[in-house]
Structures are given as structure tokens and as C-alpha cells.
Design a protein around this nucleic acid. Structure first.
Lengths: 172, 172
DNA sequence: GGCCCCCATGTGATCTTATAACATCAAGTC
DNA sequence: GACTTGATGTTATAAGATCACATGGGGGCC
């Protein structure tokens, strides 16, 4: 089931960053990096948590919690919602995955550093998601917050639109 | 039920804009303004739609679709989810209400103009929501989008944190 | 007037997403 | 070896959203 569910939106040609890359390498690299960070910070990257991260890295797109749960079941883990949600809670609490609020779905973090306020570009045609950086506190929003006395702790920044690949397709 | 459900998060003192104001006046004004805009654009502000907008203006905070549905039922309208969702679809399509993705909830638009990309500040302690403007396409996000060839059509910008009132309370 | 079409509304059923509550279990501490 | 803590597993249920189909009201048209 894993394999035929992998690219429901038209093929692998528009992965997370809107570009091709050496995927196996990037998965391994990301996993290793997260393992190292967990070791350093004394976090327990247990089998379920590691598997969820690995699945998200492998699929390289936003997955709903229940899609993840299906994959977990296939991999021999528990198959009840809390299993997936707890792993996702842990991973997103520590910045290893992000929730895409607009899609009620999750992606592996594709950004190197630790502290970052991610921003996402979501293609409404193929559902591809790319992560980038934002600095919302620096713009109009930050100004409004300061003026109002509002303390920003976290920001959700998601742009919806059309990814480069789908722009080309639409023109054709 | 309408009245006791009105301020479940600690009282009316921190409404939409984190500040006091003449609420009756602001509701009437907003309703009239939306009516005028609908008339001008040939949009049908039907009784259900008008009621939903009025409820959101009156409560002056983010309400979930089912909370709205309860209020609609109390007001004698249909009580099945599509009733609320259809009205909300209409209202948000035309920018009269906004969905807060982070809360799966809806607020009446508190911004005058027609074309705007709203941004929100959400207090995690009292759930108050304030609307402001953002220009996400101008900052780091816009730059990344241009570089990637991504066409931004719409943005979700939501800041989570602590509102001025709750900052004071927390200090005390 | 009578007909038709469009759009909005109402309703039942269903689907998706998320959490509550409680039992078990393994690792670490004293 | 008993005790605590955090992770996992399972059942049940809450909360959010949509599908499919029936009804009904208001224009335009003849």
C-alpha cells in the first residue's frame, strides 16, 4: 500500500522543494541530523517517532495524521490515532516536523537550523509543499503586535498558490 | 444558551481588537457596510448569511462552525452542519469573515477595505483574536516565492502568543 | 398566468481529524 | 525489589467538514 499511495497527485516530479534532488541521501542525512540533535538534547527518538519522521521524509510531502497512521500500521506499529498524534506532537514540539494548518497535514522539516519560523508555499493544484523562512515579526505584523502590546510566540505563515511545475502545465 | 455562552474565556473585556469600544455601534456599522457592498456587487445577503455575520460580529471573537450552528438553531434556522458551512463559505469567499486556520474557527472581518491580506494575533490564554494587515509577499516569503517561481494567491498569517490583557494578568 | 431554471436552503448520512480516559510496560532511582 | 516517570497501546468519543438528495422561492420568458 505504501508504494501505490506515494504519489497520488500526479507523480514524483514536484517534491517538497519544487525541485529534483538525491532523495535517499537527503532522507538519510535528515534522519542522522535529527538523531544527533536528540542525543545532544537528551530527547528520546523512540521507534515510533523515528518511523513517523522517516515516513514523512520519505514521502516528502504533507501527509494527514491518518495517512501516517496507515503507514505505521503497515510497519507493525499500533494503529490507533493517538499513536500517530503522539509521535507527531513530539516531533513538532521539537521542530522536526511542521503542521500545515491549511491542510491539516504534516511535513518533515526541511530546514537545517534549530530556531526558525517556517513559512510554507502550498500548491493548490498538486498539493506540493515547500518550506522556507519567514520573519513575520519584522514586517507589518510585528509592528501591529508591538503597537498592541501583543507578545508573539509562534507564527503560522502559509502561502497558497501555484507551484512552478503546475504553472507550466497550466500554460500548456 | 446564547447569553451564557458568550464569554467562556473570562469575560468581555478583551474583545476582537484587544480594546474597548462601542460594540452595538460597531456591529450595526459593519452590518450596514456589508449590506451596502453586497447590494453594489449583486450578492445575495440572505437571512442565514446575514444572521451568521451578525452573530460573529456580536460575539466578536472566533467561533467554531458548530458553535455558530447552535446559535443558528436558537435563531430558528436549520441545524445541520451544511447550513452553517454554506453561509460561512459565502461570507469568507467575499471577505466578510475569515477563517482562523489555527483554531478551526471563524471571525467577522474587522477591516474596512475590500482587497486585503489579513493577519491575526491569537491569544493562547484567552483565545481573543485581533485582525491586522500583513504584506507577506513583500518580505522573505515573497522573495522565496519569486525565486522559486511560485505564484502566491492567498496567504494565511497567524501569530500565536499572549494578548496585552493576559500579559498583565500573568505578571500580577 | 404558467413554466422553467437557478440558486439557496433543509436534512440525513457519512467522512475526516483530533482527543479523552484508562491500562500496560520498560527504564531509571533509591 | 518497590516507586516513579515517560512511552505505548486500546477503546471510545468529540469536533470539524462534506456528500447526496429533496424542497422551495424568485426571476425571466412565453
Amino acid at each position: 500500500m505504501t508504494s501505490e499511495s506515494q504519489f497520488p497527485n500526479g507523480g514524483p516530479e514536484v517534491p517538497l522543494g519544487f525541485e529534483h534532488h538525491d532523495h535517499d541521501h537527503c532522507v538519510d542525512h535528515a534522519l542522522a541530523s535529527v538523531e544527533a540533535r536528540c542525543a545532544r538534547k537528551g530527547l528520546r527518538l523512540t521507534p515510533v517517532r523515528r518511523k513517523v519522521l522517516e515516513l514523512l521524509l520519505q514521502e516528502h510531502r504533507a501527509l494527514g495524521a491518518y495517512a501516517i497512521l496507515d503507514l505505521l500500521r503497515d510497519a507493525g506499529f499500533g494503529s490507533q490515532p493517538p499513536v500517530a498524534y503522539r509521535a507527531l506532537d513530539f516531533l513538532s514540539e521539537h521542530g522536526f516536523v511542521h503542521k500545515i494548518e491549511r491542510l491539516n497535514a504534516f511535513v518533515a522539516c526541511s530546514h537545517p537550523g534549530e530556531n526558525h519560523s517556517p513559512a510554507f508555499m502550498i500548491c493548490r493544484l498538486c498539493d506540493a509543499v515547500a518550506e522556507t523562512q519567514s520573519a513575520p515579526a519584522k514586517g507589518a505584523l510585528g509592528e501591529a503586535a508591538r503597537a498592541a502590546g501583543f507578545l508573539i510566540e509562534r507564527t503560522v505563515v502559509e502561502a497558497e498558490g501555484v507551484c512552478p511545475t503546475c504553472v507550466v502545465k497550466a500554460d500548456a
